[in-house]
Design a protein around this nucleic acid. Structure first.
Lengths: 262, 262
DNA sequence: GCCCGGCATTGACCCGTGTCAATGCCGGCG
DNA sequence: CGCCGGCATTGACACGGGTCAATGCCGGGC
């Protein structure tokens, strides 16, 4: 029952370049700003008045571009900032004392991550780029200070943390392989760009092994479940491209998982 | 694989008295105050200066006493307040569309709950008293307003939410029955009063069926695992009284679960 | 102090999922 | 263009944990 994501802990030439250095400040009102961000409603600036969004711009920084498999931060490092996905996708992984990797979350466009570090001030998970990616960097201290002044920011931070909590309650639930897979595919359909609508076709940013780890399945079990979903005409799958061909059928499979948890 | 906590959804005479009404305001500086709370360090008042703790006292209210199986709030109700356990213990449960109950959390002395409602403003879980119990009531709106003024309160709220998140990441993990059970017993040993030290002997506030649901096990599997732990001399168990007789042995069983997640 | 109902335990058997191993596929590189 | 390495799929089998059913135990009520 002990399994690893990827090829089993020995990552060959693990890319371990410190990647969280800041590249540039965000020019206020420019296209690198929270105040003008097209997906701000799914991220920190939600509900902020323009003047407050500009104050957020001043603390936000752009991280430097990351390559696939590069680490943004490692478990054990002190919390310096929390991050939002500007481009690409990430996974959060937990490594146990035997070196087994468990994927505990995926993060796509506009999603905030690193929040599990707030409790102790130390990152519990490592964050790894799944694709070419970059992030918005919100230095934690500055965020806290700003949120004492800007109520909407404090509230949104709490909301996003609460959302993460709900998601984890969902995956912690006792569901069958097919139920978890269906819920996962539906969740990504809602979260992959373009945001705000359900994408019937999207590209999975992660390998099968990562999905399996996240869903607590063996890679083989995932593979079989995907094959079954195709035979039933629920989805069409070509490599990493998912096409949902029977939305209601998928929803039926995920029925037992409360929709609010996706 | 579908199972229910309790006797299977039909609770017979379900106690459903609205129980969240406030009984009394907390007299400032009295024994019902956050500023004088002996377990405040595990709860909201952590890090607050005395003057700020008194401001928290003014928004905090005492809930009226609850009997075992009474609901504090139901899933679907709007978030009015978040709660801390003043006395007794609670469980948070999720009920799916088929009426199956899943226990998603236990809350004992000094612990905050109801945080999953922050995201949408609606409770996702129901909270049920496991024993005779009462709570401290923190009206959400007032808490937010106060936290814009009191940095330490905003930070502590985030920390406690983050802690909840970490706990759920832990139970979402892919572990064996024995590993989850060992981690659960150790977690309670740390959380049951007296706080601040590990209790080698404590009384389980919940029936087996609730533990099983929380750990995603059948009641029978839990029963067998407990019997095995006793035969191995890890614990001694009489009804609901747990005595840890081999702490290192228990820790060894829970080894794969990062201690930070307990 | 006895009876009753619900919780807990134990045993027999089964099913979903994991494990192991072999094969297939695809994309990158020379 | 063909080889190579990693990812994905498929099949055979094993095992952890679930299900069903019977029995045991304890605490509350009269």
């Amino acid at each position: 029952m002990i399994r690893c994501a990827g090829n089993g802990g020995d990552e060959g030439a693990e890319v371990d370049i410190r990647a969280s250095e800041i590249v540039s400040a965000s020019p206020i009102g420019g296209k690198h700003s929270c105040s003008a961000c097209p997906v701000g409603d799914y991220c920190l600036p939600r509900g902020l008045r323009p003047a407050d969004a500009e104050r957020l711009d001043q603390v936000m920084r752009i991280g430097r571009p990351l390559q696939p498999k590069q680490y943004l931060f490692h478990a054990g490092e002190p919390l310096k900032a929390i991050y939002a996905v500007r481009h690409g996708a990430f996974k959060s992984v937990l490594v146990d004392c035997d070196g087994n990797e468990q994927v505990v979350g995926f993060h796509v466009h506009s999603e905030l991550f690193g929040l599990d570090a707030i409790f102790s001030g130390v990152h519990q998970c490592s964050a790894v780029a799944l694709t070419a990616a970059n992030v918005c960097v919100f230095p934690y201290k500055a965020l806290i200070e700003l949120s004492t002044d800007v109520v909407a920011l404090a509230e949104q931070l709490l909301r996003l943390l609460s959302k993460d909590l709900i998601t984890n309650i969902g995956i912690a639930g006792d569901y069958l392989a097919d139920e978890r897979l269906a819920a996962f595919l539906l969740s990504l359909a809602q979260r992959m760009p373009p945001r705000g609508e359900l994408s019937r076709r999207y590209s999975l940013p992660m390998p099968r092994a990562d999905i399996a780890s996240y869903l607590r399945l063996a890679g083989e079990t995932l593979s079989r479940a995907l094959a079954r979903f195709q035979q039933l005409g629920l989805i069409d799958l070509k490599n990493r491209t998912v096409t949902i061909t029977d939305l209601d059928g998928l929803r039926q499979r995920a029925r037992r998982i409360p929709p609010a948890l996706l």
